[in-house]
């Protein structure tokens, strides 16, 4: 049995090497350039809104929150129009990392599972990806707060 397992492992290793040779290489440079352009552009739009809100006399933190809200709306709206997944196809992380990507990850599953009802479809699926993000965000924030409380 041991010999058989060993043989199986060797076969697996050999096969993984073969697959890596055949598999098309991920176009890392191209992907990075696109991510840079798309992600940069989204942040540029955010900056324009930020400056508009600051110009209207909002405080810095308030203006930042208003900008985030605006960008969330844009991300959600473009997902509804069926445009954000096209941006994502080219932009990769450039469309995932900005807060618009967070909005996309909320709308996409919720919209698609609407037929499963408003509680288990839309309601539950809103948080398919946003859920883990919020869970870990809240955890780390509370942890930082507690550590800060202990060491200050």
């Amino acid at each position: 049995m041991n010999l058989e397992q060993q043989r199986q492992q060797e076969m697996q290793k050999e096969y993984h090497v073969l697959v890596e040779q055949i598999k098309p290489k991920t176009r890392v440079l191209r992907n990075c350039i696109l991510a840079f352009l798309v992600g940069g552009f989204i942040c540029l739009i955010g900056q324009i809104f930020l400056q508009i809100y600051l110009g209207q006399g909002m405080g810095e933190r308030e203006a930042a929150a208003a900008t985030a809200t605006t960008m969330v709306f844009l991300g959600a709206f473009l997902t509804g129009l069926g445009i954000y997944d096209v941006i994502g196809k080219y932009g990769g992380a450039g469309s995932i990392v900005p807060i618009t990507g967070f909005a996309n990850s909320i709308v996409a599953p919720a919209m698609e599972f609407k037929r499963e009802g408003f509680v288990f479809g839309v309601g539950a699926r809103l948080f398919t990806i946003a859920g883990p993000v919020l869970v870990y965000g809240f955890l780390i924030s509370a942890l930082i707060g507690i550590i800060f409380y202990l060491i200050r």
Partner: peptide, 14 residues
């Protein structure tokens, strides 16, 4: 904003 935002996204892509 463009450059720094873009670079953060490149980190995500990598």
């Amino acid at each position: 904003a463009f450059v720094i935002g873009g670079l953060l996204c490149v980190i995500g892509q990598l």
